[in-house]
């Protein structure tokens, strides 16, 4: 019997790309997290680029991004690489560097298009227009009453996108809510 990773949103219709605005489910793409007193040093030792302050995301290597959620918590996301079906690491990677389970705890949605901040403003109280939320910014906030991490970065075509990480148990809800909010722009 084959083992498949199943995204909670896999059965929902995706939004057609229209006028550049699209919503994509990237939940099967690879992401991992580390937390702990020595987490930043550990990532640097691994040759990764680490944001200097919390709530920022920086490119590290070709396809990888490192996102700082606090001084001691970092997520490494790779939109181009598929996740594996192995049990995520749970024991210390290094002294006081604990792996996190963000591959499974959070779904990953990617909102792209010039009106992405207008769509988000229908759900989220943080000003996500580029003036206030430039590329490289990260917000841990709420959208449509659920907690969400929003990262502003570029995709492989160098287009700016919002990556949204949301508790997988409410990802279907947020997906439908985002589609509803996108309605007027499509």
């Amino acid at each position: 019997m084959t083992v498949m990773l199943t995204s909670p949103i896999h059965s929902l219709p995706s939004t057609p790309i229209h006028g550049g605005l699209s919503l994509e489910d990237a939940s099967l793409a690879a992401r991992r997290g580390v937390r702990g007193r020595h987490a930043a040093d550990h990532l640097r030792d691994q040759g990764l680029t680490v944001p200097p302050v919390p709530n920022q995301i920086v490119a590290s290597g070709d396809d990888q991004w490192v996102m700082a959620l606090s001084r001691r918590e970092f997520w490494i996301i790779n939109p181009q690489q598929l996740a594996t079906a192995a049990m995520p690491d749970s024991t210390a990677i290094a002294s006081e560097v604990w792996p996190l389970y963000c591959q499974h705890s959070h779904s990953w949605l990617i909102l792209q298009g010039a009106q992405r901040a207008d769509v988000a403003a229908k759900l989220c109280a943080v000003d996500l227009r580029s003036e206030a939320f430039p590329l490289g910014a990260v917000a841990q906030t709420q959208a449509a009453r659920v907690s969400v991490i929003i990262a502003h970065h570029t995709n492989s075509q160098q287009q700016p996108v919002f990556s949204l990480f949301v508790d997988q148990a409410v990802s279907e809800y947020l997906w439908l809510t985002l589609q509803d909010a996108m309605g007027e722009f499509i």
Binding site: A144, V170, D180
Partner: peptide, 11 residues
Amino acid sequence: GRRFDPARKTP
């Protein structure tokens, strides 16, 4: 408004 009512669903 849109009456946001987030229901949690298991996988």
